[in-house]
Amino acid sequence: MSSPMSATTFINLLKKEGVNVVEVGSWRTHNRNGKGPWGPVHGVMIHHTVTQGTARTVDIVQDGYSSLPGPLCHGMIAKSGTVYLIGYGRTNHAGLGDPDVLSAVIAERDLPVDNEASVDGNRHFFGFECENLGNGTDPWPAAQLEAIERVGAAIARYYGWNERSVIGHLEWQPGKIDPKGWTMASMRNRIRARLAAKPSAPTPPPSNGVTYTVKPGDTLTGIAKSLGVTAEALFAANKDHLKDPDQIYPGQELVIPNGKPLPQPQKPKVDLSRLVEAAKKNPSMSGTPVTYSGVKVVEAALIDEGLLSKSRYDGHFGADTVKAYAAWQRRCGYTGKAADGIPGKDSLAKLAKKHGFNVVA
């Protein structure tokens, strides 16, 4: 019987296997454990999302739908090969499936045809959604397929499983077609080969693939300007995984279109004194609000932590942002007046270290 590993073990083994991961909000505690058991775990299940655009897909698998609440997976594998960690514990990804398939996964033998749906798969499988339209023609980039391979191998390696413990949704539940565009047999062959070797670093991107990693507070226009390219050219170079130029997500990898080594922009700087001024004045709603670009950097980090609504990403350190920052201070261990929502040097430094910006005292 395989008990679920801890969230910390989970992220560490993915990194050890060479997986590029991005932590989305409070993924470690985002789960459906209150609706049913999680474990024992017996395998890994792969899906496709029937969506387009990394940011939009992350939102969907994190929040779910009214009829199927999130999280909808443990991780979302983007076309770039980046794995966004969405939830940990029981997630709504597998649904009911065939008991004979589960028995075959546990015994690590060839899978029978799935013709029944009576066993709770959300309890027994790690689930990974892959960004793809699922129409058979939407491309699967090499980096994305390699990430699927690495994720499957990482979990199987930890539990001492072989490649037969990694299955597709179409092999579990009658009527499902995902993943579509390649075969699970071919993926299991890749995982078998990877398990025969030691974990290794990720394969470098293709020749012209000079990339930029999106930081909190970034915009496509701002990134393009810093790198000396047009926003239109940057969007066109990334159109396979960007649906909307206004929807980019911290941790996303963007390909720079001219392929020349360009300097990465410096980390955003946040002036602590100006941030405190905004936090003290704006919630009172008296006079003209204090606006400062550094506020958006902090708001983006609080959104990524799952503490602030995206609708409050406005550059005003208002009452909702103060409340969210107070929650961050409590998360850091502060109490009482030390968790009043007014940024302090130490709590801001911790937020900056985690979300990639610099603090100016």
Rank of each mutant, 00 (worst) to 15 (best):
G87H: 08
T91C: 14
T91V: 15
N92F: 09
N92P: 06
A94L: 11
A94I: 06
G97I: 10
D100P: 00
V101E: 04
V101S: 10
S103C: 00
A104Y: 05
V105R: 11
V105Y: 10
I106T: 14
A107S: 10
A107Q: 11
E108H: 07
R109I: 12
D110G: 02
D110F: 03
L111Q: 02
P112C: 02
P112I: 01
P112D: 01
V113A: 12
D114W: 01
D114R: 15
N115V: 04
N115M: 02
E116S: 02
E116T: 02
S118D: 07
S118I: 00
V119L: 14
D120W: 04
G121P: 04
N122G: 01
H124N: 13
H124V: 06
H124P: 00
G127E: 05
F128P: 05
C130W: 04
L133D: 12
N135C: 05
N135F: 05
N135E: 03
G136F: 06
G136H: 11
G136T: 10
T137S: 15
D138S: 12
D138G: 11
D138Q: 11
P139E: 05
W140F: 15
W140R: 08
A142T: 13
Q144H: 12
L145M: 15
L145V: 14
E149Y: 06
R150A: 11
R150V: 04
R150Y: 10
V151I: 12
V151H: 07
G152D: 08
G152A: 09
A153P: 05
I155N: 03
I155D: 03
I155R: 09
A156D: 05
R157S: 09
Y158G: 01
Y158T: 03
G160L: 04
E163A: 15
E163I: 02
I167G: 05
H169W: 13
E171A: 11
E171S: 13
W172A: 01
W172F: 13
Q173E: 06
Q173I: 03
Q173G: 03
P174R: 08
K176C: 00
I177E: 04
I177T: 12
P179M: 01
P179C: 01
P179D: 03
K180L: 13
G181Q: 04
W182C: 00
W182H: 14
T183M: 01
T183W: 00
T183Q: 07
N189A: 13
I191Y: 11
R192I: 00
R192F: 04
A193L: 13
A193N: 14
R194K: 11
R194W: 02
L195P: 07
L195K: 09
A196M: 11
A197L: 13
A197T: 13
P199S: 08
P199W: 12
P199I: 05
A201E: 14
T203N: 04
P205F: 14
P205Q: 07
P205W: 13
P206N: 09
P206S: 12
N208L: 08
N208V: 06
G209F: 15
V210S: 10
T211P: 07
Y212M: 03
T213F: 05
T213P: 05
V214N: 10
K215A: 14
K215M: 14
G217R: 12
D218R: 12
D218I: 06
D218L: 10
